[in-house]
Nucleic acid binder design. Structure first.
Ligand SMILES: [Mn+2]
Ligand SMILES: [Mn+2]
Ligand SMILES: [Zn+2]
Ligand SMILES: [Zn+2]
Lengths: 144, 144
DNA sequence: ACTTTAAACAGGAATCATTCTTAATTATGA
DNA sequence: TCATAATTAAGAATGATTCCTGTTTAAAGT
């Protein structure tokens, strides 16, 4: 079994998949599937949006990208795969990483207090980025 | 200005709105708009799903219900309006309250470490409820 | 390199939650 | 009561995501 996208993973290396992974690893942002589609399309002009969706799902199932649900309609994807938290600006929708250590102990705390076997948790912060805090008067901000 | 749903709030008391609020306050679960629609329809047979959506939004904008985004496709609504965290079973989708004190200090911590003005955060736990842990072998569970 | 076969693909249709539009109904209040 | 504004029901529209189908591509063995 050759040509693995990532050694030791049962994931085939295909044209679209490779470009998607390369491109999402180049950026520090948290793009939507459509934003990735526009980026990937520059290298693979015939790629389809469905292919981008499908491969982002496959990559996230194999832990090669993260799939994030924030407070807007679309899913966001993240090339950084170590567990970390995010903040989203409620005005412009920008999503960024949080330099906060993971709170692993809260899973245990919750498991002890409930009848659940706790597998994981997510934390999302919401607030105003610098730009949006400043232009508070102008009202130029987009909605999330 | 009479007929307010809640004293001191600028929110009028209408037939559908009143029933929706009464019914969501009766239950401890975290229904979707459609589940609320089915419940409300028993008292108001001519109510429409759009009215349920609109009023749940209005109620949540006024802080009379919470609107929750968990890891399934629909929004969930919560008649309990004090801040609290939730856990969702990854197998059956059931969503329940967590008896964990709010971590208010993390907002400050994040604000100090980032360029954001932090307004709020959400924490969601995911795991297996007792029923779904037990029937692990049977494979009868629904997907979330 | 050639063949076979399963997986991946493009393009477009379908799905599904949610929002929007509009005309009718209901509440407010002078 | 009459005028006006808000709410509603019904169904259309929207938008993100998934699914379907016929075609192309990659992988594994010759
Ligand atoms: Mn990230
Ligand atoms: Mn709750
Ligand atoms: Zn911003
Ligand atoms: Zn369960």
């Amino acid at each position: 079994m050759k040509n693995l996208l990532y050694t030791g993973k049962k994931i085939k290396k295909t044209r679209a998949r490779t470009v998607i992974l390369e491109e999402i690893n180049k950026i520090k942002s948290h793009p939507t599937a459509y934003e990735m589609f526009k980026i990937v399309k520059q290298r693979l002009p015939r790629v389809s949006l469905g292919t981008v969706y499908r491969n982002l799902d496959i990559l996230s199932e194999h832990g090669l990208v993260l799939k994030l649900k924030m407070n807007d309609a679309q899913m966001h994807y993240d090339g950084r795969t170590d567990e970390h938290y995010h903040i989203q600006c409620v005005k412009c929708g920008k999503t960024e990483d949080i330099p906060l250590e993971m709170l692993n102990n809260i899973d245990t705390a919750v498991q002890d207090k409930t009848a659940y076997r706790v597998l994981y948790h997510t934390i999302s912060f919401y607030g105003l980025c610098t730009e949006c805090t400043e232009e508070d008067v102008t009202g130029k901000g987009n909605k999330v």
